[in-house]
Design a protein around this nucleic acid. Structure first.
Length: 423
RNA sequence: GGAGAGUUGGCAGAGUGGUCGAAUGCGGCGGUCUCGAAAACCGUUUUCCGGUGACAACUGGAACAAGGGUUCGAAUCCCUUACUCUCCGCCA
């Protein structure tokens, strides 16, 4: 959510910058400013009425003490009238507040100056490519075939027990999952992140805080009887730690890493290109979250980008980094880097990580602030990134490392798996 | 799940209808003292929304778990919800 004060002072800039995201904000901004004006008027009138009522109540008390009962009773009548009008003013104010809020949440975050216009993912800029792409040859198997051949992931069994998109991992497949999770967490801790193990279900306030509600309600599994939601990413509980919090300067930088299962309904997004591990309803992911002061959040973003690159390097996977164009960047993000690894049997790039700076967009909605040395209270900046999501990493590891004798585990991972080959 | 008690400022903890945004202690910040530090002493210390004015300042309103109610007036009385604690039951 953008700050109302910013919109009020820079309406044209908001409209111009949102054009990069192919979002026509001109009407919305007009409505927001008009509603804000109504809201402030109502606030002023309510305050005046309440001020009078407060004064009156005080003098009534005084009169009672002095025994002037009759005068007091006269004033009571006036007070009652004030009460009625303050009530209707309060209702009007609340209505304006709600309306304003409803309008504000429709406005996407402003893109960073480096974000280029564009319509779709085809317009994303490839800013870095690294690693060797080998020709896996005609006989190369896709990961779903490899999974079956080595009996390490069982999709059919998942279908039977739960449904599509909920596979079983077994044997060395399960151990590979566990190894990757540990590897990612250990690397995160080494890089200065504090490890958290969050709840997998969150309440409505939390789902709202990071913007899953109301925008992406249909994407989350819900437990309505308890008012809870299954998290689509650890970002939700981890960022919500700081909901309604005012940090001190000395608390910075906040760097957290968390592993969680992630649950996504992915309604209506199934098809041939999402076979196997390419898209799941339940998957594993290690997430990094940073909270920064306003002046160094972009340094943090670059640091996170380099960190994610270092993970892929250690896993010896060929990857590239994209800077998302205005049309592909998310509603809440100001600047996003996507990481894709090349899957040699499918012969396509698979997105494995998304690293974003949300600037104050999330923090404003969550009321996450910090106090400067001078005593000013500012909205913090939030950033997060996958580091990393497992399924597509596993898909690429299986496909890229297949040999006649089995699947070779990258060296960096062997201490975690305890084996060098899946065979 | 049953019975009872509770939820106040960063923390501890007063406050049972008006003088309470809220005592006191601790912590934090600034200062005096000191070569420096500790101790002591002095001062200061929540947040949000408005208005005037604009690096300051002044001023109105709101918030004592959340929401609603009673009352001229609520931290204080009533109701609902959430959470915490104690005892019992159940249990990985």
């Amino acid at each position: 959510m953008l700050q109302i004060s910013f919109i009020r002072e820079h309406p044209q800039e908001v409209v111009n910058r949102l054009k990069i995201k192919n979002f026509d904000a001109s009407q919305l901004v007009k409505q927001i400013i008009a509603t804000d004006e109504l809201r402030r008027e109502a606030q002023t009138r309510l305050d005046e009425t309440l001020a009078e009522a407060n004064k009156l109540a005080k003098s009534i008390g005084q009169l009672f003490k002095e025994g002037k009962r009759e005068e007091a009773n006269d004033m009571k009548a006036r007070s009652a009238a004030l009460k009625a009008s303050s009530k209707s003013l309060a209702e009007a104010l609340e209505k304006h507040n709600d309306e304003l809020h409803e309008l504000l949440v429709q406005l996407p975050n402003l893109p960073h100056a480096s974000v280029v216009p564009g319509k779709t993912s085809d317009d994303n800029e490839i800013i870095h490519t690294e690693g060797e792409i080998r020709d896996a040859g005609e006989k190369a198997l896709a990961h779903w075939d490899l999974a079956k051949k080595y009996r390490i992931i069982d999709f059919e069994l998942g279908n039977k027990v739960t449904g599509a998109g909920f596979p079983f991992y077994r044997g060395k497949g399960a151990r590979l999952q566990r190894a990757l999770i540990n590897f990612f967490l250990e690397e995160g801790v080494k890089a200065g992140y504090e490890e958290y193990q969050p709840p997998l279900l969150v309440n409505e306030d939390s789902a709202y805080g990071t913007g899953q509600l109301p925008d992406k309600e249909g994407q989350m599994y819900a437990v309505p009887v308890d008012g809870l939601y299954l998290i689509p990413t650890a970002e939700v509980p981890i960022t919500n730690i700081y909901r309604n919090v005012i940090l001190k300067e000395t608390d910075f930088p906040v760097k957290n890493v968390a592993y969680s299962n992630c649950f996504r309904r992915e309604a209506g997004s199934w098809g041939a290109h999402v076979r196997g591990l390419n898209r799941l309803h339940q998957f594993d992911k290690v997430e990094i979250v940073q909270i920064r002061k306003q002046d160094d959040s972009y340094e943090a973003l670059e640091e996170m980008r380099e960190y994610v690159a270092s993970l892929l390097r250690k896993l010896e996977l060929p990857f590239r980094i994209l800077r998302l164009c205005g049309g592909d960047i998310s509603f809440t993000s100001a600047l996003t880097y996507d990481f894709e690894v090349f899957s040699e049997a499918q012969k396509r790039w698979l997105e494995v990580s998304s690293v974003s700076n949300f600037e104050s967009f999330q923090a404003n909605r969550m009321k996450l602030r910090y106090k400067t040395k001078e005593g000013k209270t500012l909205i913090a900046h939030t950033l997060n990134g996958s580091a990393l999501a497992l399924p597509r990493i596993v898909a690429a590891l299986l496909e890229n490392n297949q040999t006649e004798n089995g699947i070779k585990i990258p060296e960096a991972l062997v201490p975690y798996t305890g084996f060098e080959m899946i065979d």
